[in-house]
């Protein structure tokens, strides 16, 4: 049975992604910092689906451990899903360099570090899939969260290039751009209900899009339209707006 590696397995979205893949017959490597805190989830998934779940200690910002980590997996995964994300509060990131750096390192540098290794391996094997959870915030920088957004923009550009490179070898790359999602990260924000997805909706969308070999997924899908509009507002107007 094939394994899927989930990087950043502690987030609400990752938890649901893990359940969906297990439900559909995949075994799992769940990688996160302090991975023993995922014992309950491992147990939950084993009861639900009978899938084999292995917890893996992984720190996305300890770049030099990534190669060793990937080699240590007992069986090469058929797919890798990067869900790791860190959303610093914008004003905090403006004031504290460490917050900005952490945002870049988790959302961008760390993701590239592990995916470079995965991509080289998958390309050689000529099979596999890669899913990167980016964000609609990366589609255009806004004053409300441009530091997080710019890191996600970089990640989206990386995934686009990776998809282009791996096309020849039959490895698929899916860029996921969630809009608002009802998670721990957004619990205290006032989100409009009709634009907000639940983590399990996002997970189902990711699974379906990945299985169909799609390139870019907006979830909820309405966000494709919203971002299309936002991207096309002329800069001379956009700079005056508060959205």
């Amino acid at each position: 049975m094939s394994y899927v590696l989930i990087i950043g397995a502690k987030s609400d979205i990752a938890k649901e992604v893990a359940r969906v893949y297990a439900k559909n017959g995949y075994n799992l490597y769940l990688a996160a910092r302090d991975s023993s805190s995922l014992e309950d989830l491992k147990h939950d998934i084993e009861i639900r689906s009978g899938a084999d779940v292995e917890l893996k200690e992984f720190d996305i910002t300890s770049y030099d451990t990534h190669e060793g980590f990937y080699r240590s997996l007992k069986k090469r995964p058929i797919g890798v899903i990067v869900v790791s994300g860190y959303m610093a509060e914008q004003t905090a990131a403006q004031k504290e360099w460490i917050e900005t750096l952490n945002t870049i390192n988790v959302n961008y540098t760390g993701a590239l570090s592990i995916l470079n290794i995965v991509a080289n391996d998958f390309e050689k094997e000529r099979r596999g899939f890669i899913v990167g959870v980016s964000s609609v915030a990366g589609d255009r920088g806004r004053k409300a969260n441009y530091i997080y957004g710019s890191a996600k923009a970089g990640f989206s550009a990386y995934l686009s290039g990776l998809r282009n490179r791996l096309y020849e070898s039959g490895v698929t790359v899916l860029t996921v751009k969630p809009g608002f999602v009802n998670t721990k990260m957004t619990e205290n924000l006032e989100l409009p209900q009709k634009l907000t997805a639940s983590p399990s909706e996002v997970a189902e969308d990711i699974f379906n899009a990945q299985q169909k070999g799609r390139n870019v997924l907006y979830t909820k899908s309405i966000w494709m339209l919203i971002m299309l509009i936002i991207k096309h507002i002329p800069e001379f107007m956009f700079k005056k707006m508060s959205i």
Binding site: D40, L41, H43, D44, I47
Partner: peptide, 9 residues
């Protein structure tokens, strides 16, 4: 709904 682990079967 966020409190949703299966605990035993």
């Amino acid at each position: 709904k966020t409190y949703n682990y299966f605990l035993d079967f």
